[in-house]
């Protein structure tokens, strides 16, 4: 049997972490309760106590915990980001997921034994970029932005000894991660600066007759009629007007789902498959972890004979954004 990719699941809270482990995650990733991570949402994430408990829970079961410190340190006083790295090392995480090159530099000098993963927010889309981070900081794994075709992912893997992690399921960023400033253009806060996208504090819902309007910092992102399901106004997934046409000009509300590509993903040597969604509930994590665990194991056994079970597709379909799914950039026509 080929070597299976690790299943890396999101843990926005201690219950989600335990659930992910119980349902088959090989590793979970988490962040601290501050702007050092890209899911800096109210009510999410870990303090020292819950992180300690989570790491113990995972390690007792032979699983790994990765800490995402994946925003960009701002300005001159970057001690908060450095402290987060120190804290991760002290807590005994299995790796830190970093985006900022200066912070990678700090981590590699201060904690030479701490394993470094290059965050998707570092925007490394080619092997030269990945290999630079390896040469400079000893990065051992890179998470690729959701922009490459599967062939291109394979090409990166063949040209580097750094492990490659790809996204397998969850809300889809249509833009290159780490290179999208749309949220700060509309609100002043972006993933890179504040660890947020289309932040909830700027969202306003308006009811006018049968029409519901979703605004982000007063900018109209979408409008819904009486029978239309209204989605969260993530600004790249709204309907806009271009030359008189009103449509999802950038991307529909949709989720990435790679189930049908699992044999190829295994075949090209992907080291880990990541599930998006630290902002989602433990129930989401349970369902996704369980389904992907089963699908990855089955794909590894069956390879060319593998086919996606309708039950898996149904389970993930219910969790998908707008209940729509796509192979995204892995499949060329999407572009």
């Amino acid at each position: 049997m080929p070597k299976l990719p690790e299943l890396v699941c999101p843990a926005g809270s201690l219950p989600a972490l335990k659930t992910a482990i119980d349902h088959g995650a090989d590793a979970v990733y988490m962040g601290l309760k501050n702007e050092t991570n890209a899911r800096n949402f109210a009510g999410l994430n870990f303090d020292e106590k819950s992180a300690t408990a989570g790491i113990r829970y995972a390690h007792d079961k032979g699983r790994k915990v990765l800490m995402a410190i994946n925003t960009f340190a701002q300005g001159v006083d970057i001690s908060r980001w450095q402290r987060a790295v120190d804290q991760a090392a002290d807590l005994g995480v299995d790796a830190v997921i970093l985006a900022d090159l200066g912070l990678m530099d700090y981590a590699s000098r201060r904690h030479p034994n701490l394993r470094l993963h290059m965050s998707v927010q570092s925007s490394a889309t080619n092997y030269e970029a990945v290999n630079l981070a390896r040469d400079l900081f000893g990065v051992q794994r890179a998470v690729l932005p959701r922009v490459l075709t599967l062939d291109q992912v394979g090409h990166v893997i063949r040209h580097t000894d750094v492990e490659i992690e790809v996204f397998g399921f969850g809300s889809l960023c249509v833009m290159v991660e780490g290179r999208c400033l749309l949220s700060s253009y509309a609100t002043g806060e972006s993933p890179n600066t504040h660890g947020v996208c289309s932040p909830a504090k700027f969202v306003r819902w308006e009811q006018n007759g049968n029409t519901t309007s979703a605004r982000l910092n007063d900018i109209l992102i979408d409008q819904y009629g009486q029978n239309e399901p209204a989605g969260y106004p993530t600004l790249c997934k709204g309907r806009f007007e271009v030359q008189g046409d009103t449509y999802y000009a950038l991307e529909e509300p949709t989720s990435l789902n790679v189930l049908e590509m699992l044999p190829q993903i295994i075949d090209i040597g992907v080291s880990a498959i990541k599930v998006e969604g630290r902002q989602r509930s433990p129930a989401y994590v349970a369902q996704v972890a369980k389904t992907l665990r089963e699908a990855i194991d089955t794909a590894g056994r069956e390879m060319q004979r593998f086919s996606v079970k309708p039950a898996w597709q149904a389970a993930l379909g219910k969790l998908a954004e707008g209940q729509q799914q796509t192979l995204g950039a892995y499949n060329r026509p999407w572009k």
Binding site: F72, D100, L101, G178, T193
Partner: peptide, 11 residues
Amino acid sequence: NVYNSSTLALM
């Protein structure tokens, strides 16, 4: 994505 003085020094 040079957002701070450490990353600038690295550049």
